[in-house]
């Protein structure tokens, strides 16, 4: 029995204060302001929002935190900030700016104690371990952890790392399939299934959403708590409302 209603999480790639590609909403050709977009997606029924700082350079940080601050002013759903989080101080700055959760990726691979330190200081509920995984037959589960957008393989097995990360203090796992990311041919079901079965913390599946039926398929056949959606919403292929309607039709319990 699933405890929670399944979540639709909208992800915005932020670059230097703007949403990278811009987003098409009905009647508006291009909206690049993350603050305005955040409010629109909440109104559409998004359950959570993720800001991903895709540049994550030292110079871009002040602008990013300013956006988080302004977004937190208007948003009444949880906001996760990811990208470029290197230290407990970075986590503190993000939370102070108004983020509810902070996603840590390669910094946790280099130093897993970062998860523990952040969880001890701020609580596991705000520490998200972001895992990028790729199919690799030589890894025990069949999936290897990669970093740097998939370019750099690590020695870690995806399932083992998810388990270790949750034990170290992560309260949630954001699981991205690098093979499926951007392909819009559906989520990586096998990866999501094995990771969700291995950990007790919620798993957010990411990479591959191309149509509402992909979310239905994900929730019907894996233990994922949430589905991350980006491109198909921003391009106007579908809406959060349409995704929720498809999920209800598929007997998936949503808000």
């Amino acid at each position: 029995m699933s405890a929670n209603l399944r979540r639709v999480v909208v992800c915005l790639d932020v670059d230097g204060g703007r949403v990278k590609k811009g987003v098409r909403f009905e009647g508006l050709r291009d909206v690049g302001d993350p603050v305005e977009l955040a409010a629109r997606y909440e109104a559409e029924g998004a359950d959570e929002l993720v800001f991903l700082d895709i540049t994550a350079t030292v110079e871009s940080r002040p602008a990013l935190f300013e956006i988080v601050r302004r977004t937190a002013e208007v948003l009444f759903i949880p906001l996760t900030l990811g990208g470029g989080i290197r230290s407990v101080d970075d986590v503190a700055t993000a939370l102070r700016a108004g983020a509810d959760k902070v996603a840590v990726n390669s910094a946790a691979v280099s130093d897993p104690t970062l998860l523990t330190a952040a969880a001890e200081r701020f609580g596991a509920q705000c520490v998200v371990l972001s895992i990028d995984a790729k199919r690799d037959a030589t890894s025990p589960s069949g999936f290897r952890v990669v970093t740097h957008g998939g370019r750099r393989p690590t020695s870690l097995d995806a399932v083992e790392w998810a388990r270790a990360g949750a034990r170290a203090g992560a309260g949630e796992i954001l699981l991205t399939s690098i093979d499926h990311d951007g392909a819009r041919d559906g989520y990586e079901l096998e990866l999501t299934r094995v990771v969700a079965a291995a950990v007790e913390v919620p798993v957010v599946a990411s990479g591959g959403a191309g149509a509402p039926r992909h979310l239905v398929e994900l929730f019907q056949s894996t233990g994922a708590d949430a589905a991350l959606v980006a491109g198909i919403l921003h391009d106007g292929v579908t809406t959060v409302g349409a995704l929720k309607a498809a999920l209800r039709d598929g007997d998936v319990a949503v808000r």
Partner: peptide, 8 residues
Amino acid sequence: RRPHMGWS
């Protein structure tokens, strides 16, 4: 499953 995180 703990923590209980999400919408219920």
